Amino acid sequence: MNLRQLKYFVKIVEQRSMSRASVELHVAQSALSLQISSLETRMGQKLLVRSSTGVSPTVAGQTLYKHAVAILRQVERAAHDVERSAADVSGSASLGLPVVLQDLLAIDLLVAARTRLPQVRLHLAEGMSYLLKEMVLQGRLDMTVTYQFEPSPGIVEHPLFNEMIYLVSPVKSGIKPREGGLSIAEVAQYPLFLSSRQTGMRRLVQAGLAAHGVTVQALAEVDSLRTLLDAVETGNAHTILPASALQKHLKSQANSSVVINSLNITRNAVLCTSEHLPLGATATAVYELLENLIQQALEDGRWIGIRPVPDAPST
């Protein structure tokens, strides 16, 4: 197995067509077929299936595809690191950000990267935490910010900050901000719109309720942050959101269109990288820049309801 075969294989899977891959690679179809045949012989597995709708990977092919993408990315990164000047970080780096963290981190990071790392092309990917972590494992992202809930095999987590969780209520509901907030058990009495069950936020809420022997049936499951806030502002439901999603409302509570009460649960944000794919020099520079930005924001007290991750209790 060699890099050329992996490159050809990846392109065929992505194009889902031998002929389209041939055009993209500027390689004759017969040469592609020969290389794939050799690869299948080496692996002892059928990797591709041809049908009337195109070419698709077998189960073994899907496994190889994930590894091949990561290998090719790592080779490209290694070549770039060797070529780059030690005094001038350049190249591309990619970072995943869950939608809920876009307002908190995206603009500050983009501005800082433009100023401090002008030769770096930073790609920000938006999505659900579990999908972004999968992309890190596949080598499609260098790193992602997500939330700590349970260990993920192959993922290394570095703590970033701890944030409070809030019940967000319509003004016309009559609920008032309560000093000391509410208990998670109290939210069961309110009509709730919540994020879907696979999200970290929903799992955290369910775990908090279960710890108090309480269950709740969401009136609707909505993954759009904007829609959740719109539903509250228009008086249709309550919702539960983290501090990172509510900074504008928390900083202007006197004029806010919603009522916010803290709950007795928090969660940790973490920066995730692959255990098996070390960061290149460019991605490491972005990693350190993000860490510095967050540390400075915490020291300046710029964020409400967000603090350093508490030290683990000694044993």
Results as ranks from 00 to 15, higher is better:
109 L>R: 00
113 A>V: 11
78 A>E: 15
54 G>L: 06
201 M>T: 01
150 E>C: 09
63 T>W: 06
151 P>W: 08
188 A>V: 10
134 E>H: 09
184 I>Y: 06
63 T>K: 10
196 S>A: 12
119 Q>P: 05
128 M>F: 14
156 V>P: 06
98 P>C: 02
77 R>T: 15
119 Q>R: 12
87 A>P: 01
158 H>C: 02
137 L>K: 05
88 D>F: 00
195 S>A: 14
156 V>D: 11
57 P>C: 08
144 T>R: 01
178 R>P: 07
167 L>R: 08
167 L>H: 09
109 L>E: 01
103 D>F: 12
127 G>Y: 03
145 V>H: 13
159 P>I: 02
180 G>V: 01
132 L>R: 07
137 L>F: 03
54 G>T: 13
68 A>Q: 01
163 E>Q: 14
73 R>L: 03
75 V>P: 04
115 T>C: 05
164 M>A: 09
143 M>E: 14
138 Q>Y: 01
172 K>I: 04
181 G>Q: 07
131 L>I: 10
167 L>M: 13
98 P>R: 12
91 G>A: 06
174 G>M: 08
160 L>A: 11
165 I>A: 10
93 A>K: 05
201 M>H: 07
147 Y>V: 10
113 A>D: 03
73 R>A: 07
165 I>L: 10
110 L>H: 07
167 L>D: 05
59 V>H: 05
197 R>L: 14
150 E>H: 07
180 G>F: 06
137 L>W: 02
70 A>P: 07
69 V>E: 14
88 D>A: 06
188 A>E: 08
106 A>Y: 07
88 D>S: 09
114 R>W: 10
105 L>N: 14
190 Y>R: 12
157 E>R: 05
97 L>E: 04
74 Q>M: 09
140 R>I: 03
183 S>E: 13
181 G>R: 14
138 Q>S: 12
159 P>T: 02
139 G>T: 06
86 A>L: 13
129 S>I: 14
191 P>K: 01
84 R>E: 06
170 P>W: 03
170 P>K: 05
78 A>P: 06
142 D>I: 05
80 H>L: 02
189 Q>V: 15
138 Q>E: 05
104 L>A: 07
65 Y>V: 02
135 M>P: 08
124 L>M: 02
130 Y>P: 04
86 A>P: 01
98 P>Q: 00
108 D>M: 09
80 H>T: 02
131 L>D: 13
55 V>D: 03
